[in-house]
Design a protein around this nucleic acid. Structure first.
Lengths: 121, 121
DNA sequence: GCCTATAGTATCCAAAACGATACCGTGCCT
DNA sequence: AGGCACGGTATCGTTTTGGATACTATAGGC
């Protein structure tokens, strides 16, 4: 999505849907969160799992996820740098959504594009 | 979201999540689909339910939903014009996602913004 | 020395998304 | 006659999103 995120939630049935959507609005956010469900990961681990994302974009979206309280970021004072990303309880509460997305995708992915295996590089 | 929709699905666990996301990527799409779960609606009915959307944007997103096969559009040859929008079987298959989004939003909406009641106009 | 990994920052750019605003033809109601 | 509803179209503009590319300091391995 783009432009303004949903920021004003009206008291109709749609508004809770908008609230949830507004948090995962970002091209790679759901995918990142999905991977973090399995446990803590470091920056380049995430980057390798999420095919296609540029490092600048990944940084931005991890920052937004952290700002929204969906993940936590732990920096170890060492060289080379070590940073760990972990899904937060709030982020974990999105699990039903993420799992539904994956289940749907698994059952319907053949409708759009063809899975490719070139990101194993 | 914006820019390129997810269009190439790699064979890793994220790609099915991407596939699902790519279909509901649009500021108002989930909300529209959510409302259509309850049954067929006409254009201005949807417009009244979805607070904040401009009529131009609603038209665009309904078109995209139709193009993706998530809803169907039926035009009655009469004046004034009558058009009915109905969720399709493919769209209906997104119900678990939409319901998860609403459940999460219901439980967390207090974290962001305050519900307002000014769209009842 | 060079290459790689780490986790970024910096800068610029292009594309897309959405909003704002005005307008349309017909019929119905007042 | 005027206003309103219907379901849009048309045009322009702004903002945002994400990508492309280059660069960073340190350490370890070869």
């Amino acid at each position: 999505m783009a432009k303004a995120r949903h920021s004003r939630f009206d008291c109709n049935p749609g508004c809770s849907v908008e609230a949830a959507i507004s948090l995962i609005d970002g091209k790679w956010k759901c995918v990142v969160l999905f991977h973090l469900l399995d446990g803590t990961m470091r920056f380049n681990e995430i980057r390798r799992e999420v095919a296609g994302v540029t490092q600048r974009t990944l940084t931005n979206q991890l920052r937004e996820l952290e700002d929204d309280g969906l993940i936590t970021r732990k920096v170890y004072a060492q060289v080379p740098p070590k940073v760990e990303y972990t899904i937060s309880p709030l982020g974990r509460s999105l699990e039903p959504i993420l799992v539904s997305l994956k289940a749907w995708g698994d059952g319907n992915i053949g409708r759009f594009g063809k899975p490719v295996v070139e990101n194993a590089a």
